[in-house]
Simulated assay, not measured.
Amino acid sequence: MTAWDLGLLHQINTAGSHPALDWLMPALSAIEAWLPAIILAVLLTAWRGGKQARLMLFCLAIAIAIGDAVISNTLKKTVGRVRPRDAMEGVIVRDLGNASPAFMRLFEKPVIKASEPRGETHGKSFPSSHTVNMFAVATVIACFYRGAGLAMYLLAAAVAYSRIYCGAHWPSDIPPSMALGVLTGLGVVSATKRFMSRWNARV
C-alpha cells in the first residue's frame, strides 16, 4: 500500500473516530438492515410515480444487477486485493450487532474491535460493491429526477466513506468504485432510453 493510502486510512478509521459515527457508519454500510424501507419505497414509487418512475425502477434494477453481479464480482475475483482489516493490525473494525430480522440490527450496540490479520493474500477489497451500487443508483435517479439524484449522491458518498471508516476498504478503492457506479448508471439509462425510443418508433 502507498503512504497516501495508509495515512488516509488512519485518519478516517482511527484518528477521525467518534461515538456517534461508530453507530452511523456501520448503519449506512448495513444495506440489508434497510431492506424493508427500500422495498416499501420501491412499491410506493411503482404505485404512485407513473410511467417515468417505473422506467426509472427498471433502470435501477438493471444497473444494480450489472454493477454488483457483473462488474464488482468480476473485478473482485480478478484483482484480489486484501481488505485493510485482513491485511494489517491496528485497523478498527466496526459493525452493527447481530439481530434477527436484519433491521433490528439498527437498534443493537455496534461491535468495535481491532483487526487481527489472517495472512490472506487474496481478498475482495476492490472495488467496493457498496460504492459501485450506490453511485449507480444515484446516477440513474439523477437522470430522471435531478433533485432526488443529488440527495442520493450525498447518501452514496456517506456510504462510501463508511466503508473506509469500518475498515472494509482502502481509501484508494473508493474513487474508481464511484466512477464505475456512475458509468454503469449512465450506460444503463442511455441504453434503455435508446431501446425505448426505437421500440416506440416501430409501434
Rank of each mutant, 00 (worst) to 15 (best):
T184Y: 02
F135V: 04
A41W: 05
N133E: 04
I164M: 13
G147C: 02
A30E: 15
L186S: 07
M1G: 01
T184H: 00
L150Y: 15
F126I: 02
G181Y: 03
G185R: 08
A179N: 02
N73T: 14
A99M: 11
V137T: 15
M104N: 06
W199G: 06
L6H: 06
V93S: 11
V82F: 07
M56R: 14
A138E: 10
A191M: 12
M88I: 04
A102Y: 12
V140D: 13
L180F: 13
P110I: 01
I31Y: 03
K77P: 00
S115I: 06
D95R: 14
P176R: 04
R48I: 01
G50M: 08
M88P: 00
R118S: 15
L96C: 10
L60H: 14
Y145E: 06
W47L: 12
D22W: 02
G185Q: 08
Y153H: 04
D173E: 11
G147E: 06
N13F: 09
A53C: 07
V182T: 05
L180N: 11
V203C: 10
K77F: 04
F195C: 09
A27I: 06
M178N: 01
K193G: 04
S162I: 09
I164Q: 13
L43W: 13
L155T: 07
I174F: 09
A102K: 12
A20N: 04
E108Y: 00
N13P: 10
R105C: 11
E116A: 10
L24I: 15
L154G: 15
L96H: 09
T131F: 05
G49W: 02
M104H: 03
F107W: 15
